[in-house]
Design a protein around this nucleic acid. Sequence first.
RNA 1: GGCGCUAUCGUCUAGGGGUUAGGACGGAAGAUUCUCAAUCUUCAAACCCGGGUUCGAUUCCCGGUAGCGCUACCA
Length: 541
Amino acid sequence: MLRVRFAPSPTGFLHVGSARTFIFNWLYARHNGGTMILRVDDTDVERNTEASLTSIFEGLSWLNLSWDEQYRQSERLALHRQMAEAIFATGLAYRDFTPAHEGDSPKPIAVGPPLSRPGEPAPKPTEGARQGGGAWLFNPGAREISREESDRRAAAGEPFALRFRVPREPERIIRFNDAVYGEQAKSTADIEDFALLRSDGMPTYHMASCADDADLRISHIIRGQDHLTNTFKHVLIFEAAGAALPQFAHLPLLVAPDGTKLSKRKHGPVVSVTTYRDAGFLPEAFVNFLCLLGWSPKNDQTMMSRQELIGLFSLEGINRANAVVNFKDVVVQPLSPPVVALPLKALGGPPLSLPGLERQGGGFLSSEEMFDPKALWLNAEHIRALPLDDLSQRLLPVVREAGFNVLPEYMLRITPLVRERIKLLKDVLTVADFFFVDQLPPYNPAELIPQKGDAAMALKALKKAHEVLANLPAADFKHDTLDANLRAAAQELKLKAGQMFQPIRVAVCGRKNAPPLFETLEVLGKEKTLARIEQAIGKVQ
RNA sequence: GGCGCUAUCGUCUAGGGGUUAGGACGGAAGAUUCUCAAUCUUCAAACCCGGGUUCGAUUCCCGGUAGCGCUACCA
């Protein structure tokens, strides 16, 4: 029975790296008909918050990801302690009565004899941490305390941490096979006596995680590569507890353009899944994008539906090198002097604004700056692949949230005009804004003047257009009729099509770049069209 | 410092002892159109360095370098 788990610790919003880890686990389970388990690793009471847990659920639900079983580590503490005690009973763990944090790195007080190899001199304590090489033996005296003394002090109520007694003499080579990174080996001389239980009785991550993985019969542990070296400790725990070793598969890390691990603290909103949701990514596109970081179907496919991903996914397709999420460094490194936000490319409207993404010194980051261009492209691809009514339904809430009370039927008519022009759902606000308002926001009248023309030409075109369109029954405000009439008018005025159409476009849309004119007029309707042309005439005069 | 991992166009990646080193994004140029977008065509762009093994290495081995990760009573 194949069983995989995703085990987030609720210490912040859902991280894109975590989301990808979930997805890979989920894909593996769904591909093989296995069981997907969500386990909340909340043993760190200091840092866990319920708000964080809520945000993780929110993120997963937006991505439309499902799981079959759910657990919470804080409800399974008895199990963890039980397994820790079982290990203690075998002699493979010992009580360390050193007060908490007194032995923490890098304070030199903990030095003691490092686990130096024969022949290597031990470093002097004053030299600081680990200069002699090898792993650190925490609080060396603690390991040697007799069982009698240990029992006595414990019975007296003295607090202690439980540490794993890593085999020292003879030193052993711990081995495991990783589905992605291959055969792994490490000497016990390089593994420190790590803690199993804290002095308050709470299990550490290593203990809780292994106890649960064993108890829940997890068959495959698919997780970030930052756990690769921890795995040796886990192998030790599994062994000591007499549990079967699961198959490990470590995933390359998601890194920032500067190569460092993506972190909430350093890279802020660009690592939060909610940022992508709020910016108007389609969940299916975002999942697609995440899958392409560190995994390949090896068949040159880039755009994949969820079903295709499930069908194509395999551990063999996972890459070993870290993958860069290619956002612009300005996101994390405020520029000085401050730079004005770039407008969205090709879209006349204001740049995308999202909370937390204000640029230092004012302005907002554009979507091209904060998102990986491939993510943007993939999102556009998925948008274009959506049926019109589906896309329209997803656009509607975005528009309404921006304060425009648009009817579903109207949205459906606008949708085909924006479908090929937006990369993010939110782009609809800058691409189709003129459909939503009664009054066009102010624009530069000079825009009304066509190529190789002057104000007189603009005026002539606008007046003629108004005349022609006014004579058209509202029912004839259809693409073909508009096309025929306006072209005829252009010919009559001896204007090129573009020279005729641009003034009208600017009059109606308030900018030069917009969806095709006749479709636009058709959707906008006779009344608004004429009103806007009249206003434009006023501006030119 | 110690240990582990990694290294193909700017980015995501395919490939693998002999290839014009493939694809995608992004970039450039052109076609098309009433603008924009979409679409189509074309172009530029990569095997970290040094040794070995071999008739032949980008590919296998070793070393170096660089990057990353771990090295907590965090996860």
